[in-house]
Amino acid sequence: MKVESSNYPARYWHRNDDGRLQCDLCPRDCKLHDGQRGACFVRMRQGEQMVLTTYGRSSGFCIDPIEKKPFNNFYPGSSVFSFGTAGCNLACKFCQNWDISKSHDMDSLMDQASPEAIAKAAREHGCKSVAFTYNDPVIFAEYAMDTADACHALGIQTVAVTAGYIHEQPRRELFAKMDAANVDLKAFTEDFYFKLSSAHLQPILDTLVYLKHETRVWLELTTLLIPGYNDSDQELVAMCNWIMKELGPDVPLHFSAFHPDYKMMDVPPTPVATLVRARNIALKQGLHYVYTGNVHNIEGDTTFCPSCQAPLIVRDWYQINDYRLTALGHCPDCGNPVAGRFDAKCGHFGRQRIPVTLG
């Protein structure tokens, strides 16, 4: 099926008494007159319905290592077919993908593809999974869900890289189609979310608890540490204690390095020492799988046995240099099971990144 560049009927909205249509996808609850767009820019009122303006249109396709998303305990070494669209329902001043997520230029979405075409391309390139990434799949939920169905029909896994800012009903329906999710836990204060992301913390925490306790979705977390904003010992301890209490010790946590970008060009890059400090705090609080990202740190890239501390998956950036898990995903030294999703053998995709054009 060829998908033309046209507006697609959206789900998750209702008519208010004042005649405006309210979007029910995320906690922003945008209320729109005819022709107006929501804060995400891609959901628009057109006459008497809500439409998604980016269905079937992508900012590009690329084959990545799964560790780049990042997922370290989800089929390590495998390749993932990655794509996104445009727009975002958050307004992060530190956005590292702002050219995509903040884009209001629909003409920048040059690649067109139906859900079936994406699934077939992923299979033809030998990808284990398809990732909805670069911008948040929440705002193109209909496209992501249809693509997930097409992928599952061909035996391909699906992963969402998301901020988790979504209402209850669409959350249920979107994540019912996902095999894994990496959720950005951007900070652990309401003040940070409100001032730097124009959002709120509690809906993200609700999404995390839902994913862990009411779905079979494999869950990993990422926190971008920004010097002076969300990297204090006090906040990191509070966050890790919450993760331990509400999600348990086996949810992997990635601490990622910030680099100056978008509206925070005056903030310095995150020192490696900050990531190491954060990782040590998380391990001390009892988390089993804590990683560092966007920096060269082999120890922070490595998966250790939570029981005997043996290095089990040794990484150098996205390259796996040693893989010692048994076929059942256990430590060969002490027999302890390692949390995650694993094949009998490790993948060998490596560090490469392959841009793809769909005909």
Rank of each mutant, 00 (worst) to 15 (best):
A176L: 02
M145K: 09
A122D: 12
S198T: 13
A121K: 09
Y134C: 00
C151G: 11
I156T: 09
A187V: 12
Q169N: 03
E173K: 11
N182C: 11
A153P: 07
I118T: 05
H125Q: 10
T162C: 02
K195F: 01
A181V: 09
I118R: 09
A199F: 06
T207P: 03
F175D: 11
F175W: 13
R123C: 02
H200F: 01
K186R: 13
F188K: 11
Q112G: 13
V130W: 07
A119Y: 09
M110S: 11
T133N: 00
V138Y: 09
H167S: 13
Q169A: 12
F194I: 00
T158G: 05
D206E: 15
E142L: 03
K120H: 02
E173W: 02
A176Q: 13
A113C: 09
E142I: 05
F188T: 07
A180P: 00
P170N: 05
Q169P: 00
L154F: 00
K177E: 10
T162F: 03
D111S: 12
C151R: 09
L196G: 00
H152W: 07
Y134Q: 04
Y134K: 02
N182P: 04
S129V: 02
Q202K: 13
L205T: 12
P203R: 13
L201T: 11
I139C: 03
V130G: 08
Y193C: 14
L201W: 04
Y193F: 15
Q202Y: 05
F140A: 01
I118M: 14
T162M: 00
F188V: 07
F194E: 15
H152V: 13
K186S: 10
T189M: 02
A181C: 11
L185K: 08
L174I: 14
S129A: 15
P115I: 05
A153V: 09
D206F: 00
P203L: 10
A131K: 03
T207A: 08
D149I: 13
Y193D: 10
C127N: 02
A180V: 10
R171M: 14
L174P: 04
T162L: 01
E173T: 06
F194Y: 04
H167L: 15
P170E: 05
E116I: 05
S198E: 12
A144W: 07
L109W: 10
